[in-house]
Amino acid sequence: MDVHAWPPYRLRITTPRLELRLPDLTWLDELAAVAAAGVHDAARTPFTVPWTDGTPPERARATFQHVLGTVANWRPEEWTLSLAVRCDGRVVGRQDVSATDFAVTREAETGSWLGLAHQGRGIGTEMRAAALHLAFAGLGARAVTSSAMTDNPASLRVSEKLGYAPDGVCTVAVRGAVRTLQRLRLDRASWEAHRTVPVEVHGLDACREFFG
């Protein structure tokens, strides 16, 4: 899709198996269907906001609206790049990179989810590696943060493999219960030391101003 008014739609990140980009309506509809089919066991939630509690159609609509909202609310001072992830010709999940006052802090945050049918294949690590390459190599980040519930070992393993270090914990309320969130931090030196996935970024120069 060639959208002249919004150059981030032309940004693409590729790895040996994956393509990540801001989804057009076709990709976004596929992404909504992945969310509807489920991204975790319904008995628990790995997210601070329990957006997956609804019915499949509600999850699909929430995903569709949320991604469009990230475009509508984008400002160089506060942005979320919500990328659809495609593998083997199918949309399989979502990888976000977000920041506030990035021009000053040079610090971004990652977040993601992957459809249940696509988990356990290393895709989560590969798509996070793509996001980190964009942040560090593409945008010149000094650090990238993330977080995961302490009872979400799969997400914590991905962070560990990519070089994140523990950065304290905090207590959050989810579904009316107390949960512990592990904060994580990755600096440039550790990112460099743990890089294993080849990543290419296309179309970034046309939209650098959007990132502050």
Results as ranks from 00 to 15, higher is better:
residue 73 N to V: 10
residue 192 E to R: 11
residue 13 I to E: 00
residue 81 L to N: 05
residue 94 R to N: 15
residue 212 G to F: 06
residue 148 A to S: 13
residue 204 L to Q: 05
residue 33 A to Q: 13
residue 174 V to S: 02
residue 21 R to I: 02
residue 142 R to V: 04
residue 161 K to R: 14
residue 90 R to C: 06
residue 212 G to I: 05
residue 76 P to R: 04
residue 87 C to D: 12
residue 114 L to A: 03
residue 17 R to S: 09
residue 205 D to I: 01
residue 70 T to D: 08
residue 55 T to F: 06
residue 90 R to E: 15
residue 125 T to Y: 10
residue 68 L to F: 10
residue 97 V to W: 00
residue 136 F to M: 13
residue 153 P to R: 04
residue 61 R to T: 14
residue 162 L to Y: 03
residue 157 R to C: 01
residue 51 W to H: 07
residue 121 R to L: 15
residue 15 T to M: 05
residue 114 L to K: 04
residue 48 T to D: 08
residue 95 Q to S: 11
residue 7 P to D: 09
residue 196 T to E: 07
residue 149 M to T: 01
residue 139 L to T: 12
residue 134 L to I: 09
residue 50 P to I: 07
residue 174 V to Y: 01
residue 185 R to F: 03
residue 62 A to G: 12
residue 99 A to Y: 00
residue 188 R to M: 02
residue 26 T to D: 14
residue 184 L to A: 08
residue 210 F to C: 05
residue 145 T to H: 12
residue 205 D to T: 12
residue 166 P to D: 02
residue 74 W to N: 09
residue 119 Q to M: 10
residue 167 D to K: 00
residue 8 P to A: 04
residue 150 T to M: 10
residue 28 L to D: 08
residue 87 C to S: 14
residue 59 R to E: 05
residue 12 R to V: 11
residue 151 D to M: 03
residue 112 S to W: 03
residue 116 L to Y: 00
residue 38 G to C: 09
residue 182 Q to K: 02
residue 74 W to T: 12
residue 101 D to Q: 10
residue 126 E to F: 12
residue 210 F to R: 11
residue 37 A to V: 10
residue 117 A to C: 10
residue 31 L to N: 11
residue 170 C to R: 08
residue 181 L to D: 12
residue 32 A to K: 01
residue 104 V to K: 13
residue 12 R to W: 04
residue 160 E to N: 01
residue 38 G to R: 02
residue 42 A to M: 04
residue 1 M to F: 12
residue 37 A to P: 09
residue 12 R to Y: 02
residue 115 G to P: 06
residue 21 R to K: 14
residue 78 E to W: 06
residue 211 F to E: 06
residue 178 V to D: 06
residue 152 N to S: 06
residue 174 V to K: 02
residue 77 E to S: 15
residue 40 H to E: 15
residue 80 T to Y: 00
residue 188 R to H: 11
residue 45 T to S: 14
residue 76 P to S: 10
residue 17 R to E: 05
residue 18 L to W: 04
residue 115 G to W: 01
residue 185 R to H: 13
residue 147 S to V: 04
residue 77 E to N: 03
residue 104 V to G: 02
residue 155 S to I: 00
residue 203 G to Y: 06
residue 21 R to V: 04
residue 51 W to V: 14
residue 151 D to V: 10
residue 165 A to P: 00
residue 116 L to E: 13
residue 95 Q to I: 03
residue 62 A to V: 12
residue 35 A to T: 03
residue 65 Q to L: 13
residue 206 A to P: 00
residue 67 V to G: 01
residue 195 R to T: 13
residue 15 T to S: 14
residue 66 H to P: 00
residue 119 Q to H: 13
residue 196 T to A: 14
residue 27 W to I: 09
residue 15 T to P: 05
residue 7 P to K: 03
residue 113 W to C: 08
residue 150 T to Y: 02
residue 8 P to V: 07
residue 32 A to S: 15
residue 21 R to L: 08
residue 12 R to G: 09
residue 18 L to C: 09
residue 134 L to D: 05
residue 37 A to D: 15
residue 200 E to G: 07
residue 6 W to P: 01
residue 87 C to A: 15
residue 38 G to Y: 09
residue 47 F to E: 04
residue 60 A to M: 04
residue 153 P to Y: 05
residue 50 P to E: 09
residue 71 V to R: 12
residue 57 P to N: 09
residue 121 R to F: 14
residue 39 V to C: 03
residue 168 G to S: 02
residue 119 Q to S: 13
residue 113 W to K: 06
